[in-house]
């Protein structure tokens, strides 16, 4: 499991961890049932305090991404990927709607917008 944290980022470290584990799970890199490192081992490896990884794991558990069994460790929970995909798509639609509204306001054409999107997407 690869996690890279930045101490200078504005995003709190526990959030960096939860976000990266979430995306690994959503991208299918971490399969259902896979054991993830214990929070104490992760803290040592990332050279951060235990309470930070503890908080990250707690949030992941709350959001249903992982589950913990006392004495055994934490595992990737079963994900209903269809549902998650659907939800994400809905968010993307909303956000694109806002983009389009803004674009019309300043007279940005569809082609120009596509161009901009292409550049940003490939960045």
């Amino acid at each position: 499991m690869q996690i890279i944290i930045s101490n200078s980022s504005k995003e709190p470290i526990y959030e960096q961890i939860t976000n990266q584990i979430k995306s690994s799970i959503l991208a299918g890199e971490l399969q259902e049932g896979t054991a993830i490192p214990s929070m104490r081992n992760l803290a040592k490896d990332l050279q951060i305090s235990v309470i930070t990884t503890k908080r990250a794991y707690e949030e992941l558990e709350k959001a249903g991404f992982i589950y913990s069994i006392v004495g055994k460790g934490s595992f990737v929970a079963e994900q209903n990927l269809e549902v998650i995909r659907e939800k994400k798509l809905k968010v993307i639609e909303e956000q694109l709607g806002a983009v389009i509204t803004n674009s019309r306001e300043i007279g940005l054409s569809l082609d120009e917008l596509k161009q901009l999107l292409k550049i940003l997407y490939e960045e």
Binding site: N7, S38, R40, N41, A43, K44, Q47, S49, V50, I51
Partner: peptide
């Protein structure tokens, strides 16, 4: 490394606060 063992507790005083960023809970 000592903290991997879950029942261990560390209490330490310091006035070098940067020591704490990495390890203190």
């Amino acid at each position: 490394e000592l903290m991997i063992e879950g029942n261990r507790t560390i209490f330490f005083s310091t006035h070098i606060t940067t020591d704490l960023n990495r390890i203190a809970d």
